[in-house]
Every structure is written in C-alpha cells, then in structure tokens.
Nucleic acid binder design. Structure first.
Lengths: 213, 213
DNA sequence: GCACAACTGGAAAGACCTATCCACTTTGGT
DNA sequence: ACCAAAGTGGATAGGTCTTTCCAGTTGTGC
C-alpha cells in the first residue's frame, strides 16, 4: 500500500517537478481557479504532459498542497503543545490565517472540501480534530467564550479568504486587522454580548463542498 | 444633461426590462461574473439585443444595481439620522452586510471599484462620505474605539463577501456571526488590545480596483 | 549501440464566451 | 394601411478552456 507505482523515467520526473513548481506559483498568486492550460504553458511542457501526469485538477491540487497541508497539521500540534490554552488557540488562528495570506490557493483550499480527494480529506479531518481539541481546551480554561463554536473557525477562514483575495498585493497586511478584531471578540471578556446562532456543522460542510464546484 | 436620449420603442423597452430582471436574478444568485451569454439566454432575448442595449458588462451592472445603490445610500442617511451614534453605526454595518448576504452580486460590487463607471462611482463616493461621518461621530461619542479606521469597514465588507460567497445557501445566516463578533470588537471597551496598523486608504483603493479586473 | 517501452508536444474535437454583422420583423406616425 | 426607422435574433469570427489521440522522440537495460 502506498507504493509509488512505477518509478518515473528521469525526464518525466523532471517535467513533473516543473509542473508542480509552476502550479505552486500560479495557485499562490491567483487562487485555485487557474486553468490547466495556463499551468502547462507556465511550466513549459505540453498540455498532454500535464494531463497524463495529473488527470484531474484535483490530482494536481492534491500534489501541490501536500506539504502545505503538513504544515497546517503541524501548526495544530504545535498549538496543542503550548501549555497556555489561549496562546495555543490564538497562535493557531494567526498561523493558519497567515498561511492563507501567504498563498491564495491555500486560502481557497482551506475553505473547500473535495469529498473525492482521499489523502487531502484525511489531513483535513485530522486538522479538524486537533482544532476542536484546541477550542475545547481553551473553553475549559475559561479563555475562550463559552458560546464559541468550532464553526466560527471556518467562518473566520472564509472571511479571511475574502480579505486576502480582495487585498492581494495592494494591502498585504489587511488580514491582520481582521484576525486581531476577531480574536478579541473570541476571548472570554466581561461583557460578551449575545451572538446569533452558529450554523450547524452539517451546513458548513455543505458550504465547503459547494465551493469545490 | 441627464436626458434619456431617445425614448425606446415599446418592444425594446420590454426587452430591456427582461434583461434587467434576468441579470438581477443571476447576479444575486451567483455573483458578478455570470456571463453575458447566460443572461441573454435567461432573459429569452438574442445575444445581440443584450449587447446593443448594454455594450459592456459594466453598463449592465450599472443599470442593474442602480436602485440597490440608492438603498445603500439611504442606509447611511438613516443611520446618520439615528440620535444614538452607536446604534447608527452598528445598525448601518448590519444593514449593509445584510444587503451583501441578500445579493451576491451586490456583495461583489461593494468591494470593487470601477473607475470608469461614473454614476456608480459617484454614489460609491457619497456613501463613503456618509460612512466616514458615521465613524467620526461614533468615535467622538466614545462608542467606537479610537484606533478604528474607516478602512476597517472595507475590510469587513471584503470579509463578509468571503463568508457570503462560501456559505451561500448552505448556511445563509453565517454572516451574522461574523458581524456580531466584529461589532463587539469595534466597540470601545475597557481593554482594547493593540491592533496591527490599518492599510492606507490608497492601498485599499488599489485593492478594490484590482478586484474589478 | 540497439530496440522498445516510456514519454513527448502539437493537433483536434467539443464547449463556452465576447463581440460584431446583417437580413428579416415589428412598431408607430401619417 | 403603409413604410421608414428601430429593433430583432441567428450566424459568425476569434478567443479561451478541457480532454483525447497519435506520430514522433528520448531514456534505459541489455
């Protein structure tokens, strides 16, 4: 299980890397809806080469963001290792929002779900577990307001994706304002005004599936 | 000045209305990047009819959202008429974010700027003035934190556009959570933690122009 | 240094979009 | 009722994108 099938010929492997590099760059710059043709052109390979190596756009996205998803998971583990529940939680939020700001494709990816992409979904699920622990711990310690719901993290990621997509290069630090405001509101303060009800987890899941077209 | 040029023939006027209705519906549902062809089909008119009446996509957007922009302006005036500065400000924020949630096209529109669309830009500018007054009044009254900047309103609109685009029909009230959190953080509370610096107005302007492609 | 499987890029098919053109139809004033 | 002007939709040109196919090229093991 998990074998790499046939090892690629040397020139094929070189082209694969070129494609991944081009895709990484294009996605980071412009988000996940860059065309396959554009990526092939940018990589300097024929369009057929791209499609043979990555038959669907999802396959390519999967390969491009494998390492970024690792970093995403690591961020959750690091946060859980922090002895201070609030530091852990808020540091985590800042870290993942920062990752979104650094890579528009990743920003899109975090708010989407591709039920067909197995490996990616598994990491998504693991990250979700760690995030839930982080939330529960912070709540138990009384740092995080009790009416906080883990859907709020997804909402913040979607909001942040919106800011990042809009401000792009023109105001690359605008997202920090958003996150700072939100973290303040998340903290358990003295007067925590009532919140509208949170969407159900199922509704948020549907929303993320919809985003994947 | 301001004349309607030649009054349209009756059948032409009917088609114009059909086009506007179709465009209004399509934009509300799917945002501003619905194709012209799709709108013509949906309106049941030939593609040529659409292009003759609205030579550019901007012309169409302009016509479709004229009344919505009026409502947008009215919201600011209503808010200024409220004797309570905080009520005025927070009601305004809720109102315009609600308008974004009700119409995805409008959500896109508010975070974009089309320097070429004269009428629309004029209203945009007037709304901006009213909003600035609203902010200044709330700050002077001590309801709004002193380090709030009017760029934060634009950031919130972009964030909200992100949430609305992502949650769509699946979680149509998710935006309310975002807005509630943000308003709490905007209020002048006892412990207002330091914020990262706000983007410059010029940077935000550039961001909005970029969004308009 | 040869042979063959692996790999290549370009061409092509099918969809879709914008924008323009033009032969035909409708409207409205007389 | 008539007929010019105003308006119509389909056809078309030229662009993009996805996906498949295939004749030619290039590594690699022997």
């Amino acid at each position: 299980m998990g074998a790499e099938d046939a090892p690629l010929r040397r020139d094929a492997e070189r082209n694969r890397e070129r494609i991944l590099a081009a895709a990484r760059e294009a996605y980071a710059e412009a988000g996940l809806d860059v065309s396959m043709a554009e990526i092939a052109r940018h990589a300097g390979v024929g369009i057929a080469t791209l499609f043979r190596r990555f038959p669907t756009r999802e396959d390519l996205i999967n390969a491009v963001f494998a390492d970024r998803m690792d970093a995403y998971l690591t961020a959750a583990d690091t946060a859980l290792a922090d002895p201070d529940p609030w530091n852990g939680f808020s540091g985590y939020i800042e870290a993942i929002c920062g990752m979104q700001a650094a890579d528009r494709g990743f920003a899109d990816l975090l708010t989407m779900t591709f039920p067909s992409a197995k490996a990616l979904e598994k990491q998504h699920a693991r990250a979700f577990d760690a995030m839930t622990q982080l939330v529960d711990r912070a709540k138990a310690a009384g740092c995080l307001r009790p009416d906080f719901s883990h859907q709020d993290v997804a909402i913040l990621l979607m909001a942040n994706a919106g800011v990042v997509a809009a401000t792009g290069h023109a105001a690359p630090d605008a997202w920090r304002r958003l996150v700072a405001y939100m973290l303040q509101a998340f903290a358990a303060g003295e007067p925590n005004p009532d919140l509208p009800p949170a969407p159900t987890p199922a509704a948020m899941y549907r929303a993320m599936v919809d985003l994947g077209r």
